[in-house]
Structure formats: C-alpha cells, structure tokens
Computed example of a mutant assay.
Amino acid sequence: MNTITDTNFNFPGQKSLYKGKVREVYNINNEQLVMVATDRLSAFDVVMPKGIPYKGQILNQIATKMMQATEDLVPNWLIATPDPNVAVGHLCTPFKVEMVIRGYLSGHAAREYKAGKRMLCGVTMPEGMKENDKFPNPIITPATKADMGDHDEDISREDILKKGIVSEADYSVLEDYTRKLFQRGSEIAASRGLILVDTKYEFGKTQDGQIVLIDEIHTPDSSRYFYADGYQERQDRGEAQKQLSKEFVRQWLIANNFQGLEGQTVPEMSDDYIQTVSERYIELYENITGETFVKGDVTDIQNRIKTHVEAYLNG
C-alpha cells in the first residue's frame, strides 16, 4: 500500500516548510503556498503511525471542489491544483482559531452533553436533547488552533475578543462566512442524500488584508456527515446514525482504549483495517461529490508531486 506520509521537497523559490497534522505547506517567494495533503491520519490530535491509501488525494480533491462551489459566497485562497495531492494558493496569515459550526448534537458536543455540560464555548445547548438530535439553529463553537501534537481547545467568542486573538470586526466576518458556508455545504450534502452534521473552517488574511477561506472545506477530516435516508427513524429508535466521517476511526480507537490521553498507546492498525478506512474515505468522496473516484498513480508519489509542482512553478 503506497502512501505519502512525509515530504521534504526543495522547490524553486522555497522560503520555508511548515508541517501540520496532515498537510505540509511550502512557502514560495513569500507569495504563494504549495500545500501537500499527505495520507497521514490524525485522531484525538494524535497522528497515527500508518498512512491511509489515497486519503490525501481525497481530501485535496473534495476541498478543491467545495471551494469552487462556494467561491460566490466567500473568497478563498486557492489558485491551482497541479497534482491530485496538491493545492497552490495565496500566502495568508491564518487566524489562530478554527470556526467550528454544529447543526446536530454529535461527536465532541455529544460527549460534553453526556457529561452533564449544557454550555459549549459560551453557547447554551437546550435541555432534553439526545445524541445526534438537530439543534434548533446551528451553533458556532470555536477552538484555538493547536501546534502539531497539542490539543485544540474550546474557546468562547467572548474569550477570543477579550484575549485579542481576533478583532471584533474580523470575528464578525468569520461568523458570517461560517454560517454562509455551512448553509451552502448543507444544501450540497442534501442534494446527495447526506446531512452535513458539523464542520470546521479556517480563515486567513491575504497580504492586501482580505479575509479568505483557507485549508480544507467539507472533507471527512473536517466534517461529519450522516445519511439522510432513515435518519429520523434511527433517532426515534435510539439507534446510532449511519455516518460518513472520521468518527468511525475515533470510535474504533475508543473501543481499543485510546483517546489521546497521557499514558495511552495507539493501538495497532492492521493492513486490513487500513484498507477499510481507505474504502470509507473513497465512499465519502463519491457520495459528497457525486463522481466516481479516480485513483492517482501511486507507484512513485513523491516524484509525481515534485514533477507536477515544479512544472507549475516554472510556468
């Protein structure tokens, strides 16, 4: 299973390299960023030891399609995609918060709710809800952006403004863009028989001061999807929802006694299980885009990416 889990290119005009949990970002001449989506899998803010075949390509291609489908609403950083795993965009200064928006009581919100909490990031959650119920209105629950290996942390709008992490004027734009993107993402999902349950968006400022959407959007790493068909029946019967997201990996890890806590060891992922994860990612790609997934050539991924990016940078 050929995967790409680490890169160390030296592109023309390269100024620096930043390695995130999944993506590696190359600064070209302090003007453009070349972002390589690797096959690394991160869960509970821990990068798993093995890569997932085609995961980087899937994330990159979904994000590209979703940025193109929302660019009439919200400007984004994207310029080109010279390789299945690569996006090239404008150099931006990222805001140090992730804008998480939730339409349903699921995942982290459901775990907090189950623990008796009714306030998340300064937002009150209604009494009497059960896991995977729809909120009366989507709620924005931001998180501070963590460095690799650290945990993202919940934060309220009030604390973001009080600590000066984002100015009030800019934060109002982030909230407006977040709600617009979630509405459009929900409409796209509904047209494919899916429910966009929750997601996160990241934003940055271009060198001329424009706030733009950056990183990924509506991918299985940043979003949770349910199948719309049978959703209400499953809720009424108290059954788990059929979902397409990274949550199935989290649940597998929890079942194997791992939640990223101190002293815990990442369980061994067999080749068969990794293949299953890859197939789930492909399933989500095909469901959310409505297109058949075309696997990139993985005989020599490093050289393929290098060749494509250098051809692009050299014009």
Rank of each mutant, 00 (worst) to 15 (best):
P53F: 09
N287I: 14
R184D: 06
A240M: 03
D215V: 04
Q259D: 08
Y225T: 08
D72A: 13
D297W: 04
I274Q: 04
F248Q: 07
L91A: 11
I217P: 04
S156T: 07
L17D: 08
T299L: 09
I101W: 04
G260V: 09
D229A: 15
E310Y: 12
E239T: 13
D147S: 00
P82I: 06
M99H: 10
A190I: 12
H308R: 14
G315Q: 11
K96F: 12
Y171D: 03
C92M: 02
G89T: 00
D272R: 05
D6R: 12
R280C: 15
D297R: 06
T7L: 08
G89M: 01
Q275G: 02
F226C: 15
G107E: 10
F293I: 09
Q275H: 07
D170W: 00
Q264C: 11
L284Y: 11
Y26I: 15
H108G: 13
T292Y: 02
Y225W: 05
P75Y: 11
K163S: 11
Q68C: 12
K180A: 14
W77C: 08
I101D: 08
N60M: 06
A37V: 04
E187K: 03
K114S: 14
T219C: 07
P136W: 08
P126D: 01
I188H: 01
F248K: 05
E153P: 03
N30D: 13
Y18N: 14
E71L: 15
G204N: 02
Y104D: 02
N85E: 07
F248P: 00
N287D: 11
R23S: 04
D236E: 14
P138C: 13
A69T: 09
Q259T: 12
K306F: 11
V212R: 00
N303Y: 02
H308I: 13
Q235L: 15
R118D: 06
V86A: 09
T3W: 02
G290E: 03
S167G: 08
V298C: 03
E233F: 06
Q275N: 05
N29D: 03
V36N: 10
L194E: 01
S16D: 04
